[in-house]
Simulated assay, not measured.
Amino acid sequence: MNKINLKFFEHKCSRAFKLGSIVTYKWIRKQFVNDVLESPKLILRKMKAIVSKRYNIIMSVGQCRNAKKLELSEVEGSLKEHNAKLWDYAAEIRRTNPGVVDGWLGGCRKVIGVDGCFLKGVYRGELLSAVGRDANNNIYPLAWAVVNVENKRTWKWFLDNLMEDHIGGGSGHGITILSNGHKGLFEVVKERLPDVEHRLCARHILANLHKKFKGEQYFKPFWRANNCTKV
């Protein structure tokens, strides 16, 4: 009886299949929705490598480019639709939250936290916000605004509107403002609200301290000093 050559039956198929003509960029887009949203600057060659590793499929850079472009265009389109409803959103906030300022004046601590953050994506700029703390130590939103850049001029405009329209004007007597120490904001508070108590956020102070003095050994002494009621 002749021996069977088993090598003849060895399975030699590759695990990576080139199915570019079958699998379209629309299919890739569906698989990469979360990836693109989390990393809009995802490199195309890296995206191609992920497809190959994750699905054992070889796609072209062009297909990955089209998939990413489609997803970003849909995201940007939805953002434009949402931003077009901004005035309706403001009207609904006023309708469903009557007496927001009266609530802050009547039931919250006279402490206002102000800060700014960058806006990324289709609509760039910076978001300025002011929040308070209610009797349960929860955040109490007061005001927010979108500006082109965070500087002395925009902070003056924001604080002027906040004090005149919401807090009843004045020089800030009896109010404490908490900020991250932005230079423009610091100058505006001194000029616009001479009687306010201006204090800096401890977390930002610690972050700046950590840039010069590395090591976690500084954390506990810092917070002990921060919580101390006596000097």
Rank of each mutant, 00 (worst) to 15 (best):
G20D: 15
A91P: 00
M47E: 06
A145F: 00
I175Y: 08
H82T: 13
G172E: 07
I177V: 13
T96L: 13
D88Q: 08
L19M: 15
G174C: 05
C64R: 06
Y218Q: 02
L127I: 08
N180Q: 10
F9P: 09
R15C: 09
C117N: 04
E164A: 02
M163D: 02
T176H: 01
C64I: 10
V51Y: 03
V149T: 15
R15G: 12
V75L: 15
I205V: 15
F17G: 05
K12H: 15
G170Q: 08
L72I: 12
E187L: 10
G107F: 14
K7L: 13
A135P: 03
N136S: 09
Y89A: 08
I58S: 14
F9Q: 09
H182I: 04
A202M: 13
R29S: 15
G172A: 03
R65C: 10
G62C: 11
S39Q: 11
H82Q: 07
P141R: 01
M47L: 15
I139N: 00
F32D: 01
M163S: 07
K26C: 10
F17E: 15
G99Q: 00
T154L: 07
G169Y: 03
G184Y: 07
N66I: 03
W104N: 00
K41T: 09
L142D: 03
E74D: 12
S39H: 10
K30A: 13
A207R: 11
S78A: 11
F186I: 07
D35R: 04
G107A: 08
I50K: 02
G174V: 10
H173R: 12
V231P: 04
E191N: 14
Y55M: 12
K26R: 15
H204D: 08
R203A: 05
T154I: 05
R192V: 02
Q217R: 05
V131T: 12
G132T: 08
D160S: 07
G99Y: 03
A130H: 02
V75F: 14
N148V: 01
C13H: 13
W223S: 02
S129N: 08
Y89N: 01
P221V: 09
A207L: 05
R224I: 12
L200E: 05
K85R: 12
H210P: 00
I93T: 01
D35Q: 08
T96R: 14
V131P: 04
I4F: 12
K120A: 06
F186T: 15
D35I: 06
N2I: 11
V101M: 04
K12V: 10
A207D: 11
H11S: 11
W223T: 01
G99M: 00
L206P: 01
L72G: 03
K85N: 07
H204S: 07
L159P: 02
S179V: 09
L6H: 14
L142H: 02
I167T: 02
F32I: 06
L206F: 15
K230V: 12
K230R: 09
S60D: 10
S60A: 10
E81H: 01
L19I: 07
L185K: 11
A16S: 13
E10Y: 14
W144S: 06
G121K: 00
D115H: 06
N5S: 11
V196G: 04
L86K: 04
N227E: 06
V122T: 07
K48A: 15
R54S: 14
R133L: 14
M59N: 06
E10R: 13
V23H: 04
K18P: 06
A90L: 09
N138L: 08
M47Q: 12
E74A: 12
E164K: 14
L206G: 02
I28E: 07
